[in-house]
């Protein structure tokens, strides 16, 4: 191997290693902090890793706040909102791509118009609207406003436009209804798109903070992120408990992310570049 190639590889590995360290270090800092005493955390001369890791800190953090309830709320919100986005996007995308009906063009523009209105701009009127509906501090208030997905409708439409028309024609000649053509012939083809989109939408819903913040203000209806921020305001200076609570929130998502990394990477690309 020529020396210049060795040098080039060394530079690439060093830079990549440094970048991975920058990504990973805060998480290691969190684990170390979660296992320290507070005295160890605030002592600048103390070693980065505790001499006697205190695993009991995690149990103590768990007992200080209703993490189980917050996990349950986040799961209900995440699963229901994602399922709604996928299903409504699949149906609308299919209709806009494969069926002909009066008003198709304006309805398509309307379906995509949601993409032009960032949720963050309308937080005040949307919370007033949900208040008028009596939906504040409810699951439907969390879930229903998130179901329409312009992105989902758009991506599924793109996908179905690329599928062969002949498949449907053949099924129709065999006497299949339009609903059956969709359910038995076309919908199963969309499985890979649905998988990539599902994981990305799920993580977005799971980590959504601003929306639950304006819809929910009770402890028992809070999602995990909200609960965590309340936890922090109650235990401001008990840094080890705060780090333990962050750990409780991060580890499960980390496991999902490692298991589904291929779908996540696909989903990110699908959402932004297509």
């Amino acid at each position: 191997m020529p020396a210049s190639l060795v040098a080039r590889r060394a530079v690439v590995y060093t830079l990549l290693g440094l970048a991975v360290l920058i990504v990973a270090f805060p998480l290691l800092w969190m684990v170390a902090g979660a296992l320290k005493t507070d005295a160890e955390i605030v002592n600048p001369a103390a070693p980065l890793w505790p001499e006697h890791p205190r695993w009991g800190n995690i149990g103590q953090a768990l007992s200080q706040a209703p993490f189980g309830r917050w996990y349950l709320n986040t799961t209900i919100f995440g699963v229901a909102a994602t399922a709604g986005q996928l299903l409504s996007g699949l149906l609308a995308g299919y209709a806009f791509a494969m069926l002909d009906f009066p008003g198709k063009r304006p309805l398509f523009v309307l379906a995509l118009s949601g993409l032009m209105v960032p949720f963050s701009a309308i937080i005040v009127p949307i919370s007033q609207l949900l208040g008028d509906l009596g939906w504040l501090n409810t699951y439907q208030g969390l879930i229903v406003p998130n179901i329409a997905s312009g992105l989902g409708a758009f991506l599924f439409r793109q996908f179905f436009l690329g599928t062969p028309r002949e498949l449907g024609e053949a099924a129709r000649l065999d006497g299949a209804s339009e609903l059956r053509v969709f359910a038995a012939v076309y919908a199963p083809l969309a499985r890979p798109v649905a998988a990539a989109l599902a994981i990305i939408l799920f993580l977005q819903n799971w980590n959504n903070f601003l929306f639950p913040l304006i819809v929910v203000n009770t402890t028992e209806m809070s999602v995990l992120s909200q609960g965590l921020s309340v936890f922090q305001s109650q235990f401001t200076t008990q840094y080890n408990l705060i780090m333990a609570a962050s750990l409780i929130a991060i580890v499960p998502v980390l496991l999902v992310a490692v298991a589904a990394q291929r779908h996540i990477i696909e989903g990110i690309t699908l959402g932004a570049l297509d």
Partner: peptide
């Protein structure tokens, strides 16, 4: 990883 774990948690870190 930083993209998919809860922002509140990483912000606390």
């Amino acid at each position: 990883i930083p993209l998919v774990v809860p922002v509140v948690a990483t912000a606390l870190i």
